[in-house]
Simulated assay, not measured.
Amino acid sequence: MNSNLRRQPAAVLWDMDGTIVDTESHWIAAADEIVRAQGITPAPNALAALVGMSLADGAKLMRGLGVDLPLGELIDRHLECAMRNTALAGLTWRPGAVELLSKLRADGIPLALVTMSYRVYADVIIDALPKGLFDVVVTGDVVERGKPFPDAYVRAATLLAVEVQDCIAIEDSLIGLAAARSAGAHTVGVPHHSEIPTSAADAIWPTLRGRVVTDLRIPLA
């Protein structure tokens, strides 16, 4: 981050899909399958907007494309299809993510997973990671409002007993960065499926590869 960011954060709050693990495509493919099963051919990139969305907002997007299913059923189908896709494709970690997580854990910096995936899906990812990385897990099924609202990040900081303004959030999407900023966290954007303008985060890193604990600093109070 910028050279004037010199204080260790109270915690680092991590997005999951697209930031730690390359699973955004699994969710997009699941939505594409659901939409096409209704006889609808989505426009190119129409489903790319799902990146960073809550499952409820994703279901609303699909309904907007013409999918005629109740919201709850659509969420359940999307989750089921995404879990199947992930089971079939396996997990590919984003470059440097697991390494940086492990370095932060070794240094004793509190870590939270803040994802719009539901807990049953997040547990698949958590179980494949080194044990005990996260002190707190906040998933999309435990907050009333998903990203871009601040609720999930505020909840994570509260559970960690830290001030969210003293935390850094790492995100790959504009929706996620908006949520973190709205909560008051400092932000690092790591683009994957979509571009992130420099104005959307405090720092933009093309990758987490080679990053170390001292790269994550916030302004002195």
Score class of each variant (00 low, 15 high):
Pro70Lys: 07
Val162Cys: 13
Leu101Val: 01
Ile196Thr: 06
Ala178Thr: 15
Ala179Lys: 07
Thr115Phe: 11
Cys167His: 02
Glu144Leu: 08
Trp27Ala: 13
Phe149Ala: 15
His78Thr: 00
Cys81Gly: 10
Ser173Arg: 09
Ser54Cys: 07
Arg119Pro: 12
Val98Gln: 07
Gly90Ile: 05
Ile168Glu: 12
Ile125Asn: 10
Leu160Val: 08
Ala156His: 00
Pro70Tyr: 09
Ala157Tyr: 02
Glu73Asn: 12
Thr139Phe: 03
Ala82His: 00
Leu104Arg: 07
Leu220Met: 13
Lys147Ile: 03
Cys81Lys: 14
Glu171Trp: 05
Pro150Gln: 00
Lys60Ala: 01
Ala178Phe: 05
Asp107Leu: 09
Val136Thr: 04
Val162Trp: 05
Lys147Asp: 12
Gly52Ser: 03
Ser194Asp: 14
Leu160Phe: 01
Val154Thr: 14
Val138Arg: 11
Val51Arg: 04
Pro95Glu: 13
Leu65Lys: 03
Ala185Lys: 08
Gly108Ser: 00
Arg105Lys: 15
Leu129Val: 08
Glu24Trp: 00
Pro197Arg: 07
Thr92Lys: 10
Leu55Glu: 13
Ile75Gln: 11
Ser182Gly: 10
Gly146His: 04
Ala56Gly: 12
Val190Thr: 06
Tyr118Val: 14
Ala10Ser: 11
Leu79Phe: 06
Val98Ile: 11
Ser117His: 01
Gly58Ser: 03
Arg77Tyr: 00
Ala161Thr: 00
Ala82Glu: 09
Leu133Gln: 06
Leu159Glu: 15
Leu111Cys: 12
Ile109Asp: 13
Val213Leu: 06
His78Met: 09
